[in-house]
Design a protein around this nucleic acid. Structure first.
Length: 572
RNA sequence: CGGGGUGUGGCGCAGUGGUUUAGCGCGCAUGGUUCGGGACCAUGAGGUCGUGGGUUCAAAUCCCACCGCCCCGACCA
């Protein structure tokens, strides 16, 4: 590819709409172009990266015996109603009608479509197991697209689906994917960890996320520095410190207009951990519940809703007034006997606590939870926080920003049962297929490579996914002698199977060097008047900054050696 | 959905009621001098000032409404 004619436009200044490093570099180096919020064109450079990523994925999916297919992106409503997700996806799903008024969606994922295929094609246990995958564009109407290509509304995903006769088979398919994913991300040159995750809309079975540790990443993960415990913050368990406080007498204290934990603890000069925070939850047609948690913790809504049901929502101010006779911020569990009370287990046996007095502008001190509060049950539903310790080894946990690259789920029979995908077992009995689903975001691999390896000058592509192997930089391209050497060099490289982008633009040297750094091709060969006097070219390694002078007849040999060196560690 | 920004040639910005044809830098075109880390000279092309309405003798500029985009939060396989 010749840069003088390429659909590549580098920008001198940072685009104003980009904040994150990878987003800035992808825009500035001419990889992507934004088309709308969360919608992008992948220009030739990005597309070459994505194709290389796709190839690595294809090889690794092939290695675990998976078959590639391509499902439609446009899908009629009916199968989504069978699974219940026409409703569950809510506003996240792009929906449209055809000319006859029938409802369709742009698929956000493909469990329903794959299950429909499975129920038509799988008849016998002899047809199982199967792993089917595709690489395809997905559509999700994110509430807030951001960070360029990292959270967008249209993106490319490798999604695969496993079909097995039982849980044991599913375990095997799940582990095959775990291994394949590890190889894929390693081959793409990324550093990642595997963490416990939440199934969310996909299902309630086991799930693991492949997380790249990236400053400013969208997710937070919990990592034990000593043992192997790793989990998404949203599902992480931790051991918190029990604390109790002096103070035996119940005492009502005025706390005028102090409602939040922060305000009350400051006003009374106590630590947030001395407070009991109250959250009143109601659900249509069900008994309300009062949730208690220590003031220095937040409620993990995912854990809580698993426990009490997702139809429970924080009560309205009117309901709170009705049940407690006080405004939010002043309610408390003392003296409440007709409402179910569930407490976080860090509140067990605590004394000397402060909580709302069920009277506006008053709190109550000296609460002994065993003496003064009628607790129905204790559970752990708090969100982990800094300082909590590992449940396995007791070491203090670290919380880190991370970017989700892939996610694997055990679906079980959620879709096969609801949509009627059955097989006959050896006894001739009909059973639901046991399924798994597995996704990788291709653009996120691309962005992550920049986040992890890029520097202040631009991208630094791992050799395995670089858009080109070599950036051939021609100084003074109008000089005939230089032209001749350049075209000889290009032939040598082409013969040796290197992909080359040729900077043949008649612009000043600085522009070319800066663009080469920005685009981030692993090897740069410079041909200029200095070198050709001695029949030499300069070879520069983007990642290490190392420079080698090289005679023309050694180019092939040196480049092969350097490429091998840069691929080391990327072959698994 | 709440909060905060922003919208002026391809990109980055200035102009916040009246110097009659809306500016600057970069980029682009033509010619020339240059060419090992973002050169220079000359000439030139390119703009419904987000959209619609209103105020005014006069609106990029003031008022109203809407839209797009970005950031923080809520949300999120």
């Amino acid at each position: 590819m010749k840069l003088s004619k390429a659909l590549v436009e580098t920008l001198r200044e940072d685009p104003k709409d980009a904040e994150l490093k990878s987003h800035k570099i992808l825009l500035r180096a001419g990889f992507i172009k934004q088309h709308g919020s969360g919608i992008h064109t992948y220009l030739p450079l990005a597309w070459r990266v994505l194709l290389k990523i796709a190839n690595i994925i294809r090889e690794e999916m092939g290695r675990i015996g998976s078959q590639e297919l391509l499902m439609p992106a446009l899908s009629p409503k009916e199968i989504w109603e069978e699974s219940g997700r026409w409703k569950d996806f809510g506003d996240d799903m792009f929906r449209l009608k055809d000319r006859k008024g029938r409802d369709y969606c742009l698929c956000p994922t493909h469990e329903e479509v794959i299950t429909e295929i499975a129920r038509n094609h799988i008849r016998s246990y002899r047809d199982l197991p199967q792993i089917w995958y595709q690489i395809q564009t997905k559509f999700r109407d994110e509430p807030r697209p951001r960070a360029g290509v990292i959270r967008s509304r249209q993106f490319i995903m490798k999604d695969s689906y496993s079909l097995d006769i039982d849980e044991m088979g599913l375990d095997k398919s799940f582990n095959l994917h775990k291994e394949a994913y590890s190889r894929i991300f390693t081959r793409c040159g990324l550093k990642f960890v595997i963490v416990d995750a939440s199934g969310g809309l996909m299902g309630t079975g086991e799930s693991k996320e492949f997380m790249a540790i990236v400053e400013g990443g969208e997710d937070s993960i919990v990592v034990c520095p000593k043992c192997a415990y790793r989990a998404n913050l949203i599902v992480a368990e931790g051991v918190g410190e029990y604390v109790s406080f002096p103070g035996i007498q119940l005492e009502k204290v005025a706390t005028p207009n102090k409602r939040t934990v922060e305000e009350v603890s400051q006003f009374l000069n106590v630590t947030p951990s001395n407070l009991i925070k109250n959250m009143f939850m109601t659900a249509p047609g069900k008994e309300p519940i009062l949730i208690l948690i220590r003031g220095d913790y937040e409620i993990n809504e995912e854990k809580l809703s698993k426990m009490i049901g997702s139809d429970y929502q924080p009560a309205s101010a009117e309901d709170i007034q009705k049940y407690f006779g006080a405004e939010p911020g002043f309610i408390g569990p003392v003296g409440i006997s007709d409402i179910t009370i569930i407490a976080d287990d860090l509140l067990k046996d605590t004394k000397g606590m402060v909580t709302g007095a069920n009277e506006n502008d008053f709190h109550i001190k000296g609460v002994d939870i065993n003496r003064d509060v009628k607790i129905n049950s204790y559970h752990n539903f708090r969100r982990i926080k800094k300082g909590d310790r590992c449940i396995k080894c007791g070491t203090e946990l670290e919380i880190k920003d991370a970017l989700e690259l892939g996610h694997i789920f055990k679906l079980g029979t959620k879709y096969s049962a609801s949509m009627g995908a059955y097989y006959l077992d050896p006894e001739g009995k009909e059973k639901p297929i046991v399924m798994g689903s597995y996704g990788i975001g291709l653009e996120r691999i691309m962005a992550c490579a920049i986040e992890q390896k890029g520097d202040e000058r631009g991208a630094v592509w791992p050799m395995s996914i670089a858009p080109f192997d070599v950036y051939l930089l021609i100084l003074n391209p109008l000089d005939e002698k230089i032209q001749k050497i350049a075209s000889e060099t290009l032939n040598i490289l082409n013969d040796a199977n290197f992909s080359v982008i040729v900077d043949d633009r008649n612009v000043s040297a600085g522009i070319k060097f800066n663009d080469a750094d920005l685009i981030g091709i692993p090897l740069r060969i410079t041909i200029g008047p200095e070198g050709i006097k001695n029949d030499q070219v300069d070879i520069y390694i983007r990642e290490t900054g190392e420079k080698v002078e090289c005679y023309k007849n050694q180019i092939k040999e040196v480049c092969i050696k350097l490429k091998d060196k840069l691929m080391a560690g990327l072959n698994v």
